[in-house]
């Protein structure tokens, strides 16, 4: 009996994606931003804003990196666990009982 329950749960897990696509998209966005935003802001501000003054460009890169972190903290704060509603243990218990 337990093997039947576990196989049905495995089938359910295989049918529903383990991680929702919007979470994947957000994680990819923040990963790309984390790599490219400080470096690109360093070189863009170095060449176009400060005219070769590397100290200020470095400071701008550090500030931009912190802005990315702030964005992630606010994203995680607003996320509120809503994206994973389908995969919580409570829901699995309910579906098992209904069956």
């Amino acid at each position: 009996m337990s093997s039947v329950a576990s196989s049905s749960r495995a089938a359910q897990a295989a049918a529903a994606p383990a991680v929702p696509p919007n979470v994947i998209r957000a994680l990819a966005l923040f990963t790309i931003a984390m790599v490219t935003a400080p470096l690109s802001s360093f070189y863009i501000s170095l060449n176009y804003v400060f005219g070769g003054n590397r100290q200020w460009a470095g400071l701008v890169a550090a500030i931009v990196a912190n802005v990315v972190v702030l964005g992630y903290v606010m994203f995680a704060w607003n996320e509120d666990g809503m994206l994973y509603k389908g995969s919580t243990p409570d829901d699995e218990e309910e579906t098992k009982k209904s069956k």
């Binding site: 979470v23 923040f30 984390m34 992630y72 903290v73 995680a76 996320e79 994206l83 994973y84 919580t88």
Partner: peptide, 11 residues
């Protein structure tokens, strides 16, 4: 469901 919030130290 808490993984996204727990990733803050990694960032």
């Amino acid at each position: 469901e808490l993984i996204m919030r727990s990733l803050i130290p990694v960032i």
